[in-house]
Simulated assay, not measured.
Amino acid sequence: MDVDVAARLRQVRESRGISQYRLSKLSGVAASAINKVESGVTNPTVELMERLCSALGVTLSEFFSDEQPSSDRISRLTPEQRQALERFLETLERS
């Protein structure tokens, strides 16, 4: 498995309609650091990738898989929206 982290990060971010600035705010990672990763200037640490992937709504496994991350409606939700959906589904299960 040989993943171009810079290209994949840009592809996932853009597929969700998120700017580098917005990803910075969602992840707590400086926009300049995101730009450096996407430009291939620097290689991200695992911790940095975990923060970015979490903000993008994908797991590290999905990010690094040979298949492109899913672009269905659920995968485009923000982490907060996913949590709200999970709480909603839990209430349905209890009914």
Rank of each mutant, 00 (worst) to 15 (best):
V3W: 05
V5C: 05
A6I: 03
A7D: 15
A7N: 14
A7C: 04
A7H: 10
A7I: 05
R8G: 01
R10V: 08
R10Y: 11
Q11F: 11
V12W: 02
V12P: 05
V12D: 03
E14S: 13
E14C: 08
S15C: 06
S15H: 05
R16Q: 08
G17P: 06
G17R: 06
I18Q: 04
I18C: 02
S19E: 07
S19G: 09
Q20S: 10
Q20K: 14
Q20M: 14
Y21T: 11
Y21G: 03
Y21W: 05
R22G: 00
R22K: 10
L23W: 02
L23N: 00
S24L: 04
S24E: 08
K25Q: 14
K25D: 09
K25W: 03
S27C: 01
V29W: 08
V29F: 11
V29M: 14
A30K: 12
A31T: 09
A31Y: 04
A31M: 11
S32G: 10
S32H: 10
S32M: 07
A33Q: 14
A33K: 11
I34H: 04
I34C: 02
N35E: 10
N35A: 13
K36F: 11
V37S: 07
E38M: 07
E38I: 00
E38F: 05
E38A: 07
S39H: 08
S39E: 10
S39G: 15
G40L: 05
G40P: 07
V41R: 12
T42H: 11
T42Q: 13
N43Y: 08
P44Q: 12
V46H: 10
V46Q: 11
E47I: 14
E47P: 06
M49A: 08
M49R: 08
E50Q: 15
E50P: 03
E50V: 11
R51N: 15
R51Q: 15
L52W: 05
L52D: 01
C53Q: 00
C53F: 00
S54M: 08
A55S: 06
A55K: 02
L56Y: 04
G57C: 04
G57F: 00
G57A: 06
V58M: 01
T59Q: 02
T59R: 02
T59K: 04
S61I: 06
S61D: 15
S61C: 03
E62D: 04
E62N: 00
D66W: 03
D66M: 09
D66H: 07
E67P: 02
E67Q: 13
E67S: 14
E67I: 08
E67K: 13
P69L: 05
P69T: 00
P69C: 06
S70F: 03
S70Y: 08
S70G: 11
S71G: 09
S71F: 06
S71M: 13
D72Q: 01
R73G: 05
R73M: 10
R73A: 14
I74H: 04
R76Q: 14
R76Y: 00
R76H: 12
R76A: 08
R76P: 01
T78A: 06
T78M: 05
T78V: 02
P79R: 01
P79H: 02
P79S: 00
P79C: 01
P79L: 03
P79V: 03
P79D: 00
E80I: 02
E80Y: 03
R82D: 01
Q83L: 14
A84H: 09
L85A: 14
R87E: 15
L89D: 10
E90N: 13
T91H: 11
L92C: 13
L92Q: 15
E93H: 09
E93R: 13
R94D: 12
S95L: 12
S95P: 07
S95A: 10
